[in-house]
């Protein structure tokens, strides 16, 4: 088995290129995923930042939603940033009508919780499992996590709100490490994918 994991980036809409770059720097083979059949070829998947309503609609429309849910249930490692975090939430506090999620993390997410674009901000964030200096958190119309279930690990908070979580093979952040050039969070995810591959090949 080739040692380099193949990680997809859901490329229906959003900052796909930045994630592809970050994953490549973190020593993964990165490729865009738009179709159900492309989903079968990856060891892990990133759901990028973008508009969660748009990504959700397109995922349903083009038949990606159901197979993605099935793979996440089967333990496919996934990482969502911002809109991607919303997509990984089992529940959205204030969904638009018909807005579906993939789920995978037992949490309730509030969309645009930190406010509109004028309130978007940068701040240092200490992330559990990321060694060294704090991560540069870029929060853009960002969601936060209202509450989590017992199985969910809280990895970071900002201003008293949960902004990074992990449950099993699913990782999510309110902020956008892909915009910073600091790829330690992506490296953490690539490690999760490697660990899953190692466990599967046993």
């Amino acid at each position: 088995m080739n040692d380099t994991p193949v990680i997809g980036v859901l490329a229906l809409q959003g900052d796909v290129r930045e994630h592809l770059t970050a994953l490549a720097v973190a020593d993964a083979v990165a490729r865009p995923v738009r179709r159900p059949e492309e989903l079968t070829e990856v060891d892990g998947l990133v759901i990028p930042g973008g508009e969660s309503t748009t990504i959700s609609k397109l995922a349903v429309l083009f038949g990606v939603m159901e197979p993605l849910r099935a793979r996440v249930r089967d333990g496919l490692p996934v990482y969502g940033t911002c809109a991607g975090m919303i997509m990984l939430a089992d529940k959205i506090l204030d969904p638009r009508s018909g807005q579906e999620t993939v789920g995978g993390i037992d949490m309730i997410v509030r969309r645009n919780a930190f406010g509109r674009q004028n309130e978007s901000f940068e701040a240092a964030v200490e992330v559990e499992g990321v060694a060294g200096a704090p991560v540069e958190g870029v929060f853009i119309r960002a969601p936060w996590v209202e509450s989590v279930g017992a199985g969910v690990e809280v990895l970071a908070e900002h201003g008293g709100h949960i902004v990074a979580v992990r449950q099993g093979n699913a990782l999510a952040t309110s902020f956008h490490p892909e915009l910073t050039g600091d790829h330690r969070v992506h490296a953490l995810f690539v490690d999760m994918v490697r660990a899953e591959r190692a466990a599967e090949s046993l």
């Binding site: 973008g50 809109a83 901000f121 201003g159 956008h176």
Partner: peptide, 25 residues
């Protein structure tokens, strides 16, 4: 670059980053 010690709004990265989220749309 070193992270901002306190939350900072209206930075070039936050403004340009917002447009990055619109891509493909």
């Amino acid at each position: 670059t070193s992270p901002a010690p306190t939350p900072e709004t209206g930075t070039a990265r936050v403004k340009r980053g917002m447009a990055e989220q619109l891509k493909g749309g």
